[in-house]
Amino acid sequence: QGQEINLTTLQLPQLKMLHDQFDSEIEYLTSSMQSLKGAQTQFESSKRCLLKSMTPENEGKSVLVPLTSSLYVPANLVDTNKVLIDIGTNYYVEKNISEAEEFFKRKSDYVKQQMEKFQPILQHKFKTRQLIVEVMQTKL
């Protein structure tokens, strides 16, 4: 919306409506930010995991693989240099460790970028909502 509205010219019911609109926009943006943060945490954690466990010294070592979140089976680590990565829309790609590390860094950076883009917008909406509240109080 590119139009400027002078809040003081609005009546209380209109202000309430505007306030509610900002409320829901803020809620939506906040929850999106949380999802982004969650995704970033996951990418960082995958990267760390990768670097810690997929080393040549661990070649052949026995591991417990989760079949489900509560069922594990014993297995051996074969080929600590290759991993299979889900890149989206049901496509999986085989990468070596350094390529996989780059992949997670790429994803993590992208998500960070998105968060940085929306943070100021979220701030602005918070401030505006606060302004609306203040104007509403003068009209009570």
Partner: peptide, 9 residues
């Protein structure tokens, strides 16, 4: 051929 079983192939 990897076949999905739970969380693993």
């Amino acid at each position: 051929i990897p076949y999905q079983l739970g969380e693993v192939f």
